[in-house]
Design a binder for these strands. Structure first.
Lengths: 332, 332
DNA sequence: CTGTTAGCGCGTTCAG
DNA sequence: CTGAACGCGCTAACAG
C-alpha cells in the first residue's frame, strides 16, 4: 500500500500545473502534443491511478447500487442477484449487497447503511416481516428505489414482479384439467403482496371451473420449517385431505413432502405437489413436484436494475413504473 | 431526490458558521449547550444527513469491501458470502460483490473495477481459469487482498481455507474401513490448489492402507456438466468400475448419479457417492451421498473478512497469514 | 496552449 | 465558546 500518488506530485515533478496534468490525462485537445505525451508517460511509469473517491465526491456519484433482499443463500434470490450484477456491470456500476433476513429492523438498518455509504440507488426485495413501509419513503428522498419480486406497489416506486395471480390461475386450471379436485394452497405470509395475488388466482380458477372453495385448504405460512410442518399436518388431518398441494416455493414443498413420507404417503401417487419456483436441484429429485412456475428471477433482477439505472441517469424524464414479467408454467 | 442539504445551509439558516454546525453535530464539548441544541434540532427537522462521499474522501476510506468469487448462485459461495456480509456489517462495512464466472478476464476486470470504485480491501475466491496471478500482485499495491476457499498461497496474501488433504484422507479412510476398495476420484480442475491437495489425501490414504493406486480412477473435471458426464462414463466403462466415487462437490455427484441411473445402476447399492460439500438440499434426496465433508463456508468467509479488516484497520501490525478451518466428515 | 482560481462537503487547526 | 481558513484530489470556468 503505497503513499498515494496524486496529480499534484506528477505536476510538481514535471514543473507544470495540476490542471494541465488533469487535462493531459484526459487527452484534452487544447493541450500540446508533447506535453500530453510527457505527462502520460510519467503517469504510466509511476502507475498513476486517479483517486476514485475524489472523483465520486466531485461528481456526487459513487457508481454503487445497493441491493437489499431477504436471503442471498436462497437460490431464487441469488439468481436475481446474478441478473442484477450482470446488468449493472455492463453499465459500469457495482453492487452492494445486504440481507434483511426477512426482518424489519435489519431492512431498515440496511437501507440507511447503504445511503450513508453513498449508493446512487437501491434495489429492494422486501422482507416478509415488513409491515411499516415509511422507511422507503424516507430513503427515496435521498436516492431512487426500485422494488423487485417482493414489491411495494405505489406510484412513487418503480417495481418489477411476476404476474402471480395469472400463474396461480394457470396452475390450478392445469390441475383441474388433469382431473384433480382437492387442491390445497400452502401460501406465503400475509405481509407479501404475492400471497394475496396467489390466493386470488387460486380462488378465481376454482370458481371459473365451478368448484367449491374450501377455506380449510388455504394455509398461510411464516416461512419457518416448523410452521410448514404444522400446516401440512393440519391439511393431512382433514376429513378429506388434498390430493395436490400448491406450495409457495420449492423448499416449502420439500419440507411438506418429508412429512408426507413420514406419514407413509407416496409422493406423486397418494399426494402431489406443484410449486412457485423452479429451482435447479429439483430436477435431481426422484419425485419432483409435478409442475412448477418459472418466474425468471434473473430477468426480474436485470429489469429492475435497468429501471433503476434509468432513474439515476435520466432523473428528469424518469417516471416510476411497474414492469410485469410473465411467469411460465412448467409441467414435468 | 432533494437538492442536497449541507452543513453550509443549516449554518446560514441559523446565522452561525459551518464549523460550529460541524462541532455541534458531533456534540463537541466546547460548544454552548443551547447552540448545540439549536443546531441539532434544525438538523433533525430538515433530515440532515452528512454526505458520506465527502467524508470518505477526507478519510480516504469508503467502508466498502470488494468480494470476487466464481458464482454467487452456487450455494457454497452464497453461504460464504452470507458469512462475509454478517461479519462486515458488524463492523460498519458494506460488501460489493462481483462474479468471475471462473473466467480469468472477468476476474481481472472485477478487481480493477473494485479498485476504481474505491473499496478498502478485497476478498477473493479464485476463478478456476486463473493461471496468471500477476493481477493480484498489482492490486495489492493499492489495497489489501485476502483469499478464501480458492486461495493463492503466497506470503504476500492472507488466506483462509479448509484442510482438503486431511478431509480427503479421512474420507477415503472411512470408505476403506467400511470395506470399499475400488474408490474413484472425480476431482476439480488442475488450476485449483485444492485439486492437488484432494488427490494427495486420496493417494495418501490408499497408500496408508496398502491399497494400489489406480490412475484410471482419478479424473480431473473442468466443472462443466458435459465433462462430468464424459468422465463418469469413462469410469463406468472400466473393466472394474469403482464402487464408490469421491466427488468434488454435490452438483458433480448429482450429475454423475444421473448417468449411473440411466445406465441402470442403483445409487447407494451398485454404486455410492461421497462429496466435498454439504449442501442443504441433499438431505431431501431419496439416495443422498452416503458421506460428505462439511467445509463451513460461512465460517471461511467470516474469518477471511476478519483478517481483511485487520489488514485495513491495523496496517502497521498486520502480517498476512493463513487460517485453516478443519473440515468435518459427515456420515449420513 | 497553459496557469490560476474556485469549489465540491466536511473536519480540524489556528486564532480570537 | 466560536469563527475563519485550510486541505483532501480532482475538474472546470476563467484568464491570460
Amino acid at each position: 500500500m503505497h503513499a498515494s500518488l496524486t496529480m499534484k506530485k506528477i505536476a510538481k515533478e514535471l514543473g507544470v500545473s495540476v490542471s494541465t496534468v488533469s487535462r493531459a490525462l484526459q487527452n484534452h485537445p487544447r493541450i500540446g502534443a508533447q506535453t500530453t505525451e510527457k505527462v502520460q508517460k510519467l503517469a504510466r511509469e509511476l502507475h498513476y491511478e486517479p483517486n476514485s473517491r475524489a472523483i465520486n465526491f466531485k461528481n456526487k456519484k459513487s457508481y454503487n447500487i445497493g441491493v437489499v433482499l431477504p436471503y442471498l443463500t436462497e437460490q431464487y434470490f441469488s439468481i436475481a442477484l446474478s441478473g442484477i450484477e450482470e446488468t449493472l456491470a455492463g453499465k459500469g456500476y457495482n453492487m452492494v449487497v445486504m440481507q434483511s433476513r426477512n426482518d424489519y429492523e435489519r431492512e431498515l438498518a440496511a437501507i440507511s447503511s447503504l445511503i450513508r455509504h453513498g449508493v446512487d440507488g437501491i434495489l429492494v426485495s422486501m422482507a416478509s416481516e415488513t409491515y411499516n413501509k415509511s422507511h422507503f419513503n424516507d430513503a427515496t428522498h435521498k436516492v431512487p428505489i426500485v422494488f423487485f419480486d417482493r414489491v411495494l406497489k405505489h406510484p412513487k416506486y418503480g417495481a418489477v414482479y411476476g404476474d402471480i395471480t395469472k400463474a396461480a390461475f394457470d396452475m390450478v386450471q392445469f390441475l383441474i384439467t388433469k382431473g384433480h379436485q382437492n387442491i390445497a394452497l400452502l401460501n406465503g405470509p400475509n405481509s407479501l403482496q404475492a400471497t394475496t395475488e396467489r390466493e386470488k388466482g387460486y380462488i378465481d380458477a376454482l370458481r371459473y371451473h365451478s368448484l367449491a372453495i374450501n377455506q380449510q385448504y388455504i394455509k398461510n405460512l411464516n416461512l419457518t420449517k416448523e410452521d410448514t410442518i404444522l400446516k401440512i399436518n393440519e391439511l393431512l388431518n382433514l376429513a378429506t385431505p388434498p390430493e395436490v398441494i400448491l406450495a409457495f416455493h420449492d423448499y416449502i414443498a420439500l419440507d411438506a413432502m418429508e412429512v408426507c413420507k413420514q406419514r407413509g404417503l407416496k409422493i406423486n401417487q397418494d399426494i402431489s405437489f406443484v410449486t412457485f419456483s423452479n429451482l435447479s436441484f429439483c430436477s435431481y429429485l426422484d419425485n419432483p413436484p409435478i409442475a412448477t412456475v418459472e418466474q425468471f428471477p434473473g430477468e426480474l433482477g436485470s429489469q429492475a436494475a435497468r429501471l433503476l439505472l434509468e432513474a439515476i441517469e435520466q432523473p428528469e424524464t424518469y417516471v416510476p413504473r411497474e414492469i410485469v414479467i410473465e411467469p411460465k408454467l412448467i409441467v414435468r
